[in-house]
Design a protein around this nucleic acid. Sequence first.
DNA 1: ATTCTAACTTGCCATTGACAAGATGCCGTG
DNA 2: CACGGCATCTTGTCAATGGCAAGTTAGAAT
Lengths: 206, 206
Amino acid sequence: MTKGTYHHGDLRRALLQAAADAIAEHGVAAISMRDLARRAGVSHAAPTHHFGDKAGLLTAFAAQGYDELAKALSTSRLASNSFLELGVTYVRFAMTRRAHFEVMFRPDLYHADDPELLRAKARSADALYAGVADLPDGLRHRGETAERARGGTPDSAPSDIRQAGQAAWSLAHGFATLWLSGAFPDRDRDPEALARMIFGQLKVIQ
Amino acid sequence: MTKGTYHHGDLRRALLQAAADAIAEHGVAAISMRDLARRAGVSHAAPTHHFGDKAGLLTAFAAQGYDELAKALSTSRLASNSFLELGVTYVRFAMTRRAHFEVMFRPDLYHADDPELLRAKARSADALYAGVADLPDGLRHRGETAERARGGTPDSAPSDIRQAGQAAWSLAHGFATLWLSGAFPDRDRDPEALARMIFGQLKVIQ
DNA sequence: ATTCTAACTTGCCATTGACAAGATGCCGTG
DNA sequence: CACGGCATCTTGTCAATGGCAAGTTAGAAT
């Protein structure tokens, strides 16, 4: 971590880690660049050189989150071969990477047009919509073949697939968000288990 | 509005209105007490007297939001007598009162234990869970009677009703949140219409 | 070895949230 | 009507923050 005295060596990563810790502890609203700098053991202006400004740091942070979400979704799809488990994976990501999750869906906090971020975001969306088209218990609509939709970006996917994906995404995202905000009464229960029960109760009408 | 010179007369309401405008324009992250004071035409320390601190103002703002949501849900339930429309009402609330919606589910921004807020929050939850138990196309489970669940708070409602309500709430909330954050590609379409289509595709098994 | 430059520092400024102390005018009581 | 109490609003101040400018250091290239 701390190599010499002047040049940190791995400051960018250290700052992103500090951000994850700080946000998980006190929420996005409470974080400050200067505090992150202190946590990393550098001066208050050091972060600027790597991220430009506060929004720049959060942009990188959100991109990292989208990247890990894409990885998690892809892994889950290959491992369990179940659409329901894909939703559970989404919820698990929100719980274990709550700091990232909290930032990712607040585009007013970062530079939403950053190309790096957009790429990571697209990777996540691809992994999600691919599950809609591919998996056996997925919300696949009648006439559509998985072939036609596979790998398509949400923008290019046929509208039936897209809507089914949006429905599933809404469900998983809403559950995760409401849980994290403390809106549900049973906070003591295991969120993954509860998600599994709730998700399993719903199906698409043909 | 501006009565005399010294005593504003209706500052509390004016500040909440200013907050609604400012948040809708620039997001919660960007607002400052001093800006709200400027918008209301008072000195920078005037808001403190009414709300204590920034979190206090946002507490009142969130409570106002929960109150209006409860009213909207109740009205919708009596008017349309449709569970699907209850979800659409939820989405419409998120769109038209986006500033309130944005604050309500960020408890790290306000005093989440404030009694006034908790009461308004409970009213919203009641209106929502009542729809689960009452309405003809609601997600009512087999053995449960609407009688048993009606009027029950989310904490006291039977677990079947509660889970069905959580599922529906997750769906509507996730849709609204994802739409507002720009995660869906078709932002040009009418969100209510899209919500109606998506919500209509899902049903409870059994 | 010298230069070049990315990485980091110190220093500064406007803005903000919070607090303290004072000014103003409404409202009830005599 | 006079007067005192008190909620309401003001001015003044302080530490902390984000952002910028100018200087310093060390690693890398030639």
